[in-house]
């Protein structure tokens, strides 16, 4: 089976400073996959590159063996909660219905079917009773569940979630976790950025350990060895961070001209 995500030699920078070095790995389909690493290890950056929200310096990514634009409708992205202003004048239903938007349908009408899908998505995260509530009146966990409901409404095959368990109450955490397992059983692939080592092992089937470089990627039990964890959490490679600073300061290209791959 083609991997859900195939990352080839990805190097990506933030403000010209490389934060991901030569990431090269594959995520299988139909699994719960965790991208795990300490703060500032480039987890979110990796997700943004997969979603095409950032342009990598080199390397490329294939999703279900295709370029993102061809399979965008099969991919759903759940950004961190802090990326929106929760005081925005919108209620829960407004946000979930966004899951039914797409560039072509931006001008058409929202159909009865779209509404039904949104309602179903809300009930799957146990939030149906909050459908008409203003989004600022939700708890952190409920806000996260609204985001996930919007994502479900997209009816995708691959879901990318950025720290869905941060600032979430225990009830929401359980609800989200049950949902994720259910999604996996339905053959969906879910990739989750996660910083908590304690829970990572029990949550995920497949883990990518990240610390600006890829330390390991594979089945959870293979990756969770004390050696590899020590390597991922034992601090940054100083040579790497120093050379990153040099690149930013001197405006050096990360790839020489004429050397770019597709």
């Amino acid at each position: 089976m083609t991997p859900a995500i195939d990352i080839h030699n990805l190097t990506a920078s933030y403000e010209r400073k490389p934060v991901l070095w030569e990431i090269d790995c594959q995520f299988p389909q139909g699994k719960l996959i965790g991208i795990v690493g300490p703060n500032g290890s480039g987890k979110t950056t990796l997700l943004k590159n997969i979603m095409g929200l950032m342009k990598p310096d080199s390397g490329y990514i294939r999703i279900f063996g295709e370029k993102l634009d061809k399979v965008r409708h099969r991919v759903s992205y759940v950004p961190q909660r802090e990326t929106v202003d929760w005081d925005f004048p919108a209620d829960v239903m407004d946000v979930v219905l966004m899951g039914r938007y797409n560039p072509k349908k931006l001008f058409g009408r929202i159909s009865r079917e779209d509404k039904d899908i949104a309602i179903e998505a809300l009930s799957r995260v146990n939030m149906l009773e909050f459908a008409n509530r203003h989004i600022s009146q939700l708890s952190g966990g409920q806000q996260q569940r609204v985001f996930i409901a919007r994502s479900l409404a997209q009816k995708a095959d691959l879901y990318l979630m950025d720290e869905p368990f941060v600032g979430v109450d225990a009830a929401s955490e359980d609800a989200i976790l049950n949902l994720l397992t259910e999604m996996k059983n339905n053959g969906k692939t879910v990739v989750i950025v996660h910083h908590d080592l304690q829970t990572a092992y029990e949550y995920f089937d497949h883990i990518a350990l990240l610390n600006t470089r890829l330390v390991a990627s594979g089945a959870a039990e293979e990756v969770f060895t004390s050696d590899l964890l020590q390597e991922a959490y034992g601090g940054r490679l100083t040579v790497l961070s120093r050379i990153g600073e040099l690149i930013a300061k001197k405006d050096f290209p990360i790839r020489e001209k004429g050397q770019e791959e597709n």
Binding site: N9, S58, F252, R255, E256, Q259, E261
Partner: peptide, 11 residues
């Protein structure tokens, strides 16, 4: 490939 560019940067 990446060594190709880093060789010019390393002080």
């Amino acid at each position: 490939p990446i060594a190709e560019s880093m060789e010019h940067i390393i002080t």
